[in-house]
Structures are given as C-alpha cells and as structure tokens.
Design a protein around this nucleic acid. Structure first.
Length: 391
DNA sequence: GATCCACGGGAATACACGGATG
DNA sequence: CATCCGTGTATTCCCGTGGATC
C-alpha cells in the first residue's frame, strides 16, 4: 500500500459521495506500476533478460499470451523499472562496475499501435534515447534512422527495445519488425509482445525461449478488480461477489473485465448511487461485446477516425443498417468535417482493422450486392468515457 | 525548401441478380 | 441446363495534393 493511495483516500472525503473517484484507476487502458498476480511472468521475463545484469545484451525474445492477460502491464512495468535503474548511477545493476562507466543496456518501450510508420518507429526509439527533442517534420526517414544508428553505435552496452502489440491487424507484424531492426546495429535486441503463439509467427527469436503469459484465473482476476475498485471507487463501492461475477464473465481477460467494471460504475454513478449493484453489472456485461477490440487500439487511432467513431456510436440502428447509410449519417454530423467519401473509406478501414464488424444483412433487396450492417467491436459507453477524457 | 502523413477522389474489382444465350 | 452478360451496388485499391512542421 503506497503513500499516494493513502493520500487519495483522504482526499476523497472532499469529493463527496461520488462513486467514481478516479477514472484512471478503472481504465482498462492504463497500467499500474505493480501489476498484481503476475509474479511468475515477471520471473520468466527476468530470466530472459538475465544477461543484462552481467552487462551484456539478451537475445531477441517474444512475450505472448491471450488478450487481457497482462502482457503489456508486465512489460511496461518491468521496462519502466529497468530504465530507471540503468540511469541511476548507484543502482544494484551497476554494482561491480567502475564508477562513471555505466555498463547496463538501455531499455526502451515502443508501442507499435502508436508508431504506424517506419519513420514513427525510429523516431520513437531515438526520442527515448536522447534528451534533445527529435523533429517530426522536415527530416526524412533515412536521416532519423541514421541518427538513431549513430546514437546506438555510441552506446557501449547496447539497448533492449520492447515492441508491444506486434501482429495486430493492420499493424506491424513479425516480418515488418525484422525489417525495422535490420536497419540498426547489432547491439540492439528486441522483445516483441503479441498474441499469436510463437510457432504461428514469422519472428526469428534467436535461440531464446518465448515467454508465455497465461490468462488470469477467476479468483486472481476478481482480486485485480477489487484492487482497482478500491483505488478508483468510493469506499465499499464494489462487493466482492460482483467482482467475482465480472471476473467469471470475462473468462480471464482483464481488459474486458475492467471495461465492464468501468461501464457498471459509470451507470451506478449516473443514477446517483454510491455502490455498484447487480443490475449495473448485468447491463455492463451485456454492453461489452465479446470478443472485443482492445480499447487501447481504438484510442490510438488518429483523431479524425476517433471523431468518426464518436459520431457512429451515437447513431441509432437504422443509420447503421448499411455502410452507405452510416457514412451519410456520420458525414452529416456537425463534429465531423470530412467528406462523405472519406468517412465511408474510414468505415471500411476500421472494419478491416477489426474495430468495427460488417455483417451481411439477411434480406436481399433484389438489386445489386447486398449491403452490410455496421457493428461495434467495443463498448460504446467505455469508449465515450475514455475518449472524452483525452480532450 | 524538405518531409511526413492525412484526405479526397476516383478507378478498378467483386458480388448479386435476372435475363439472354448457346 | 449451364453459362454468359448487363446492370446496379458494395468494396478495395491507389495515388496526387496540400496542410503542418521543421
């Protein structure tokens, strides 16, 4: 139990009886500093990274597991700590090395949901390694790569780059990853993070054994929910029974479980209640599609695509009966100032990216190819809440 | 002036159906 | 009967342009 949490508890008294005290604590997108219940995964990851503690570079590696298993949580938390250690001169890591000669590799975390081009990727890595800011315009991809290469060449002990969310639809896959690193010196190793089992990817993970992160067990997941609830909700806002019910429904997927909790808490809060009730959980679990896309992926979309989604979630079913109708309705929305054609193309692209789903309408109207209905692959309530949070 | 990238726009292709054709 | 063709709609693909930034 950390000091921040204690202080926040006190602060709550001033916030009155509001159920939801801190949305970030409930966000399925935010990761906590100390993910609970994932100790074995941490250990296996540390085993893989072990060479680091002797000042050498670990081989390329791969962390994999089902959605909502805590892969990102574990990797971000670990890299966060390691990066901090490697810059602290008096850290344990540096014991045994001479003062003034840092002998630990650097640690960089990159989320390829955010870096959608070669340029953006090199930019992100470079930006993490140097203090001065790196321009995002006016300089070509080749130049950014060269600058990064120069920085890496100067780095004595090399750098480990965690590359999260490899292999998502429309994103960077194993082959693309290999290509990105082919342009870099050999004192860099990567740690890819993705969902597909290693045998189904084209990642060449040297000799390293992939690290598997399995789904949460129901009890563990209920505990995770209770922890988040105690951090984000008013005291006693969530019964353990209900947490357990959400956990069972989510079947080990922490992302979906937290999404449902957020939606349920929001619903209770809007009703002016100070605790989540069974009906809230009922409604929330019904509203979160399964399987669903990661909200992190939805929120990482470019601003205009998010704007299209914001308009789309507010349409009634009639307007979503076909891509054409949806494009018309969205383009007519005052918040969207894209041409109708672009909106339509976005909708197709979002479906391709599995953020939306197109389903063939049953009845055929005789003429022409039958249209398809547009369905959401994410919780509209959670999206509204989280997207609204970021301005 | 250089560069990245989001948009716009439209061409090319796929699919469904009914009717014509061999 | 099987196949082809024309029409209408849905879907995919591609590339030039221009805004924003350095």
């Amino acid at each position: 139990m950390d000091i921040d949490a204690r202080i926040r508890r006190r602060q709550r008294r001033a916030n009155g009886p509001c159920l939801v005290q801190r949305h970030e604590a409930l966000s399925p997108v935010a990761h906590v500093e100390e993910p609970s219940g994932r100790a074995p995964a941490f250990e296996r990851l540390l085993d893989h990274l072990d060479p680091v503690f002797d000042g050498s570079l670990p081989p390329n590696g791969y962390v994999y597991g089902p959605p909502g298993a805590g892969k990102s949580a574990v990797v971000t938390a670990l890299f966060d700590h390691l990066a901090r250690l490697s810059t602290e001169p008096r850290s344990v890591v540096h014991a045994g090395t001479r003062a003034g000669s840092p002998a630990t590799p650097g640690f960089v975390y990159v989320d390829v949901r955010e870096t959608t081009s070669e340029f953006a990727f090199y930019h992100a890595v470079l930006d993490a390694l140097v203090d001065e800011s790196v321009p995002e315009h006016g300089v070509g991809t080749a130049e950014v790569r060269d600058r990064l290469r120069a920085v890496l060449d100067a780095a004595r002990t090399g750098v480990v780059v965690a590359v999260d969310h490899v292999g998502e639809p429309g994103g960077t896959d194993g082959a693309a990853l290999a290509e990105l690193f082919a342009g870099l010196p050999s004192n860099v190793s990567w740690l890819a993070v993705g969902r597909v089992p290693p045998e189904d990817t084209d990642l060449a993970t040297d000799a390293a054994a992939p690290v598997h992160v399995g789904p949460y067990g129901p009890q563990m997941l209920a505990d995770v929910l209770m922890t988040r609830a105690s951090d984000g909700l008013a005291r006693g806002g969530l019964d353990h029974d209900l947490a357990r019910r959400v956990a069972d429904w989510a079947d080990g997927d922490a992302h979906d479980a937290l999404t449902a909790l957020l939606v349920a808490a929001d619903r209770a809060s809007r009703d002016g209640r100070t605790r989540v009730e069974a009906a809230d959980v009922e409604a929330a679990t019904a509203e979160v599609p399964r399987p669903s896309v990661s909200l992190g992926r939805v929120l990482a979309l470019p601003a205009n695509k998010r704007r299209v989604l914001r308009a789309l979630v507010d349409l009634d079913d009639d307007d979503r009966a076909s891509v054409t109708a949806a494009a018309d309705a969205v383009a007519a929305s005052p918040d969207v100032d894209l041409s109708r054609g672009t909106v339509e193309r976005f909708l197709y692209e979002l479906a391709e990216a599995e953020v939306l789903e197109r389903v063939q309408t049953a009845e055929r109207r005789g003429k022409g190819r039958p249209p398809s209905r547009v369905e959401l692959r994410f919780s509209p309530a959670a999206f509204r809440r989280l997207d609204g949070l970021r301005s």
